[in-house]
């Protein structure tokens, strides 16, 4: 039983990483109806920017705040420059655009900061949390930040004018335009917010997986898996999905023999496909009824 509890705890700790990333994935999906394959790379780039500012002697929270602003503006700039002109293009073109973005960001980051692994500081320290060896203060802090973020997002989307306008623009663009919402800028705003949330995720993940241009590869796939499990239309679902994926991954690794590190990605695959087939809208997503 103790083994079980320990594994669940450890699962929640890694799940926090996935939850962060899934939250960013869902944000952008809400705004633009597409999955951004370059999301992980954008987060990685932001984290590098934060690291660079700290190298120049800035305190952690100062760098943190500046990176948030940088990512927010960066997300908007990318949307305006690259994806706004493609708004009417088929999905296929968008996917190609995401891949191009992925290649560019990865390569620029690699050239600027090279591919050696870098330490990234944690604001919460890394001592054991409440005397437990399985979960460090950093991981506890990460869970805390994720939950706070979730509450803030909930308030934003439920009670603020801009949040409501964004939701309207995402669900029914035509009608939203008719009541005077600038839907095009709402999409840009969605990109900015997703980039900012991604940068928070990146800065929280970096102390665990270390900072390097390819750090997001695996995390992004688990983030996708988490978002799919929770339902792509629900931020709460994404966070719960993240924790579920983390716990599931750990339990399967412990209790099913033969599943070690080498089978971790196939597990994510199996999970994605099972959820998509059994419950395509995820656990918390809303069903979209199609009308001819």
């Amino acid at each position: 039983m103790e083994l079980f509890t320990n594994q669940v705890l450890a699962g929640i700790a890694t799940g926090a990483i996935y939850a962060c990333m899934a939250l960013a994935v869902v944000m952008i999906y809400q705004a633009i109806d597409h999955l951004n394959f370059a999301q992980g790379e954008m987060a990685m780039f932001s984290t590098f920017v934060a690291w660079q500012m700290m190298q120049w002697g800035m305190p952690y929270w100062g760098a943190f705040a500046l990176t948030l602003i940088f990512s927010f503006v960066g997300g908007i700039v990318i949307e305006r420059a690259l994806f706004k002109p493609l708004a009417k293009a088929p999905v296929l073109t968008h996917v190609a655009g995401f891949i191009a973005l992925f290649a560019i960001i990865n390569s620029v980051a690699g050239l600027t900061w090279d591919f050696t692994i870098k330490q990234f500081p944690s604001p919460f320290g890394s001592s054991p949390f409440l005397g437990s060896q399985l979960i460090s203060t950093h991981q506890a802090g990460m869970i805390g930040v994720t939950l706070v973020l979730l509450v803030l997002l909930f308030i934003f989307f439920r009670y603020t004018r801009v949040g409501l306008a964004m939701r309207a623009a995402a669900t029914l663009p035509e009608s939203a335009r008719l009541v005077g919402i600038n839907t095009s800028w709402m999409i840009a705003l969605g990109w900015g917010m997703a980039a900012a949330i991604g940068s928070i995720a990146g800065m929280l993940i970096a102390p665990v997986v270390f900072l390097e241009p390819n750090m997001m590869g695996g995390v992004l796939i688990y983030g996708f898996a988490a978002a799919v499990v929770g339902g792509l239309s629900s931020p709460l679902g994404a966070v719960i999905g993240g924790f579920l994926v983390g716990v599931f991954e750990n339990l399967v690794g412990t209790y099913i023999p033969g599943v070690g590190n080498e089978l971790k990605l196939p597990i994510a695959l199996a999970l994605i496909i099972t959820v998509l087939v059994v419950k395509p809208n995820g656990l918390f997503g809303r069903t979209i009824v199609k009308r001819v």
Binding site: L263, P266, L276, V277
Partner: peptide, 24 residues
């Protein structure tokens, strides 16, 4: 299983397949 998926969901499922293949 892909029958139940379309557009971006199908891209995602096949993406996961491609990532998992080398490990398999």
């Amino acid at each position: 299983p892909a029958l139940r998926l379309s557009g971006i969901y199908l891209a995602l499922a096949t993406f996961a397949l491609a990532v998992a293949m080398p490990q398999l």
